[in-house]
Write a protein that binds this DNA or RNA. Structure first.
Lengths: 126, 126
DNA sequence: GTAATCCCTGACGCCGGTGTCAAGGTCAAG
DNA sequence: CTTGACCTTGACACCGGCGTCAGGGATTAC
């Protein structure tokens, strides 16, 4: 099917699909007139990309997963390279969580301390 | 003092100082020739901005804190508006932490599940 | 023939803070 | 007067994913 219908079915914009192709994920074959042609199986690839993007992956991060699916695996994470990305992202998330927790603690302390001297007093909840 | 020396003393680039001014924070007075003139007290304002930026504030978020300091308060967080920003950022951080924790859990599960079928097995730590 | 609909590529805008370059003014020392 | 250090404003680049417009080709229905 062509890009318009495929985009509707996949739930993404045609712009996104062209961008994915430009970035080397999901390269559609072309019909004689130059139009992109997608097949049913590509829906799965798009779904994988969308799922990964929503959990904070970049398109570059998602590439191994798409390749893994195209290689015939049942899941995009089944390949060694995908697992490596998983581990790296997991480490990144852990690091981010640590940072945020530290910030949270510090900010809560700041807020408590500042309000001691608040001239307007506290404002209650909303 | 002029911007060059001030920047060195504050530990930021002149570019940043001009940007802060453009965004409405730390507007330096001008000497006859048009050069920006900063004084000692402004160092404190820059320090406040840098501290807030490093914990994830935007310049817009930092504005009340700078204003608060300029109003003569001992800390930038002593004013009501600053406290409101604190509360908002705290809520944002909490939300972000929740999101990341959920992701972390899901990804860890994915990684574990994927590795069951990993042809290369696990690689130990590092 | 022509209108409608779909497709193509290329390119700019956005967001936030900053690096960096360009073109030109200012001032002090020699 | 010249050199050099410092200042000014303006503007482009970056990152990532995508919206959106421009200009032009293809296909189908009438």
């Amino acid at each position: 099917m062509r890009i318009g219908e495929f985009a509707r079915r996949a739930g993404v914009s045609t712009r996104s699909l062209r961008y994915y192709e430009q970035q080397g994920l999901i390269t559609a074959r072309r019909s004689a007139n130059g139009y992109r042609e997608y097949d049913e199986g590509d829906l799965r690839l798009v779904a994988e990309i969308r799922a990964l993007l929503t959990v904070g992956f970049t398109l570059a991060d998602a590439e191994p997963f798409v390749a893994c699916l195209r290689a015939g695996n049942a899941t995009g994470g089944a390949c060694a390279e995908s697992a490596a990305v998983y581990r790296r992202k997991l480490a990144e998330i852990d690091e981010e969580i640590r940072t945020l927790l530290a910030r949270r603690t510090e900010m809560a302390a700041q807020l408590a301390g500042s309000c001691t001297g608040c001239p307007t007093g506290r404002q209650g909840e909303k």
